[in-house]
């Protein structure tokens, strides 16, 4: 099977700071990739490169067998991006915002309207379709954001902490959605800190730390015959020391205050 995304020798640095170093990755169609790592590991930078937002990197990124750098518009039209923070023009209503986004993806009006209604209905937001989003809770905004990322039926869905701000029912819905999208043959690149969710939904887990891939495989391959949870594996591979000791030190530091 041909990989849908191929990353070769990907490097990125901001000034002196190296954010990504020699990333090599093959992602196959229909896979859910759990992309995890501590803060500042380079997850968001990878995501921004894959979505075409950042274009000054070194190395090669092939999507659908085409060089991303040379076919950025074609790739963008087939990728759906759902960022962590729901930054949207919230003076608009969901209907207006989705019409705007739909136009940027060159979708016909009737298709935008039809898909928007159906998707918002699934999120129980159809009743709010004509309300300005500045009155929405964080979870409601996140649902509109997810809708806007899936509106154009992307082949690859890139999610950066999509569960941020969602209530328990919505989290269950998203987990089910991930499986449904997988069934449809879509490839999902899923960044998260929520280890239990990543462990449950991912076919393959890529762990990145300090800009380099530390581990890459199924959860069973990462366990290496142990019974460790993903959280424990994560801690072992990324932590600079004993977390219990660090917590004790933190508490002790507060006791020293005058």
């Amino acid at each position: 099977m041909q990989p849908i995304i191929t990353i070769r020798q990907l490097n990125k640095q901001y000034g002196e700071k190296i954010v990504l170093r020699d990333i090599n990755l093959n992602i196959y169609p229909g896979q859910i990739i759990g992309y995890i790592g501590p803060n500042g590991a380079g997850k968001s930078t990878t995501v921004k490169i894959l979505t075409g937002i950042i274009q000054d990197y070194s190395g090669e990124v092939m999507v659908f067998g085409k060089n991303l750098r040379d076919n950025v518009l074609e790739v963008k039209s087939k990728v759906g991006y759902i960022p962590e923070v729901a930054e949207l023009y919230d003076l608009l209503t969901p209907r207006e915002y989705l019409a705007f986004i739909g136009k940027l993806y060159h979708l016909p009006d009737d298709v935008i309207e039809d898909r928007s209604r159906k998707m918002l209905d699934s999120f129980s937001l159809l009743g709010n379709i004509d309300q300005r989003m500045d009155s929405f809770s964080k979870g409601m905004r996140q649902k509109v954001l997810i809708t806007s990322g899936l509106l154009h039926k992307p082949s690859i869905v890139i999610m950066d902490e999509p569960l941020s701000g969602l209530d328990a029912n919505a989290v269950i819905l998203i987990k089910e959605l991930l499986q449904a999208l997988k069934q449809e043959g879509k490839t999902i690149f899923y960044c998260s800190h929520m280890m239990d969710v990543v462990e449950k939904v991912s076919d393959r887990i890529v762990l990145i730390n300090n800009g380099s891939i530390m581990a890459d495989g199924t959860i069973d391959e990462l366990r290496q015959n142990s019974t460790d949870s993903l959280e424990q594996i994560f801690q072992r591979l990324t932590s600079g020391g004993n977390q219990v000791q660090k917590a004790d030190d933190l508490a002790a530091a507060m006791n020293d205050r005058v």
Partner: peptide
Amino acid sequence: KAGWIYYSTPV
């Protein structure tokens, strides 16, 4: 910040 959308869509 909502302007990120221009950069991730095929404009």
